[in-house]
Design a binder for these strands. Sequence first.
DNA 1: ATAAACTCTGTAGTCGGCTACAGAGTCAAG
DNA 2: CTTGACTCTGTAGCCGACTACAGAGTTTAT
Lengths: 145, 145
Amino acid sequence: MDGLTRSQLAQRAQVNLETIRFYEEEGLLPPAPRTASGYRKFSETTVERLAFVKRAKALGFSLEEIRELLVFQDEHVDACAEVRDLLRNKLAAVRDKQADLEKLEAHLNKALRKCNQALKQQSQHPEGCPVLKQIADLNPQNGKR
Amino acid sequence: MDGLTRSQLAQRAQVNLETIRFYEEEGLLPPAPRTASGYRKFSETTVERLAFVKRAKALGFSLEEIRELLVFQDEHVDACAEVRDLLRNKLAAVRDKQADLEKLEAHLNKALRKCNQALKQQSQHPEGCPVLKQIADLNPQNGKR
DNA sequence: ATAAACTCTGTAGTCGGCTACAGAGTCAAG
DNA sequence: CTTGACTCTGTAGCCGACTACAGAGTTTAT
């Protein structure tokens, strides 16, 4: 038989067997051609395609976005401008997240310093953890978006 | 009636009505006392408690972790050491995420530069978006953990 | 007294991205 | 020619953190 079976493809592309069917349903893989008895047969290019998906995932793209990228790729339209927009949006999202995390880090550090301080002087003020109080009093102006 | 109804509490604490019941089930709020006919009545301190939950969420804690924090708070055990550990873990997680995002940002920037370059010299090489190729060829050694 | 507005419960649905399972059909080896 | 390994389909479950809904009972306003 020419072409890969589903499990062979899974093996080759290092993805779960069921993921392949899932991706087909989701439109990330084209509907695979079938044998007479209904078995899917995949071409080598599908391995590439799955690799592309994995790498786009690693770049932080959602399956939805990856589907778009794949359409651009398939139609090899001159989609540079569209791709650039996607990249820009993703980059902006990443930077937003970074800013959130930095604020978070600052808050956690502040809390942690209080914690350590309290543990040192435990003898003088043995009443409860001040960090819990700090969380209770935090200015609710942070992160989460 | 003394105490707040569920919707009053939701209003005061700025959370969804159903979230309150959910949090009660999840052990983030203590089982509320009831009226004769079975209506919950909440005290003012519940407003505080919900505020605490919201802020802890903003600090990146999961409900699971917040439940732990609340137990510490409730038992006002000297839980500083435990709280400190939670903070440290959270801080480590935040830093991991930051590192991931930085790698991601670098990759996206690289891709974006290619994109812009390609758009400038569109006339010379009008064949397809190089970024898509780049994603296809990316070293799969990144992010995602 | 009645209608609107609220609250109760249990349960199901949402999001994203899979992962698993049951039951039926198919293919390859001995 | 049977056994075991594979594949097919549809469907359900998982994670976390909610959110929504139906149907029954309760409170409030007129």
